[in-house]
């Protein structure tokens, strides 16, 4: 699903040049659950923005679903993103002016899904994530855990194949954190590819494979034997 060859991302300001990612090579296959770990400033989030087609790399190649996407236009990236990628953030990033239902519906609107079908899809995912009773609430009226559920629902409502999660448990207490990880695990079991950036070794163990970054370099790739065994995936 994802192939990175000698990927490099450099940020330039007037006087300073910062190498956020240096020569990263990475392969992520469909159905994998990958945790990206590393200390602050190691380039985790930058890597996620590139994987999420929110930014182009400075050098190197990025193949997404077999297509070289390293130099795509903003418009083409938006198209790919809309159809294939769902995002989950540490701070949820829901639109405060829209209700739970409307927030989840948003990606489907951008995809141009017909109204009736849209309703079915939103109801199905709300049902699955047990937030149906909250459908008319605004984000501010929900707990952190509930907001993150809504964010996850929004990430998968359009049957996106890749879920990118950036510290999804960072703003949650341990109980809610566990719940969200269970949710991601379940989605992964149902076939979604999950890439998660995390500080927490505890939550990283939900992944099958951990990619460690340090100063922009991929320093280690481990098959994890954590909560779930590799055999469970097959």
């Amino acid at each position: 699903m994802i192939r990175l060859y000698n990927l490099k991302k450099v940020y330039r300001t007037d006087q300073v040049e910062t190498i956020a990612i240096a020569n990263a090579n990475l392969r992520i296959d469909p159905g994998e659950f990958v945790a990206i770990t590393g200390p602050s400033g190691s380039g985790k989030t930058t890597l996620l923005t590139i994987l999420g087609l929110l930014d182009n790399p400075t050098e190197g190649q990025y193949y997404f679903l077999g297509e070289d996407v390293s130099k795509l236009s903003e418009k083409r990236r938006a198209d790919l993103r809309r159809k294939n990628i769902g995002f989950v953030f540490q701070n949820f990033n829901l639109i405060n002016q829209l209700t739970v239902y409307e927030n989840i519906e948003l990606p489907l609107l951008h995809m141009g899904v017909a109204s009736l079908q849209r309703k079915e899809m939103v109801m199905a995912v709300m049902d699955k994530l047990r937030i149906t009773t909250r459908r008319n609430h605004y984000p501010q009226q929900l707990s952190g855990g509930q907001q993150q559920r809504v964010a996850v629902a929004r990430a998968v409502v359009g049957n996106q194949r890749l879920i990118l999660a950036d510290e999804p448990t960072g703003n949650l207490d341990s109980r809610n954190g566990e719940e969200v990880m269970e949710l991601l695990g379940k989605l992964n079991e149902e076939g979604a590819t999950v890439v998660m950036v995390t500080h927490s070794t505890e939550y990283a163990r939900w992944a099958i494979r951990a990619v460690q970054l340090f100063d922009g370099h991929v320093t280690n790739e481990n098959i994890l034997e954590g909560m779930r065994s590799v055999s469970e995936l097959s």
Partner: peptide
């Protein structure tokens, strides 16, 4: 700005 970011993230065109 947050609303703009989210909408773009979800595939809205500029």
């Amino acid at each position: 700005s947050r609303e703009v970011g989210i909408r773009k993230l979800l595939g809205s065109y500029h």
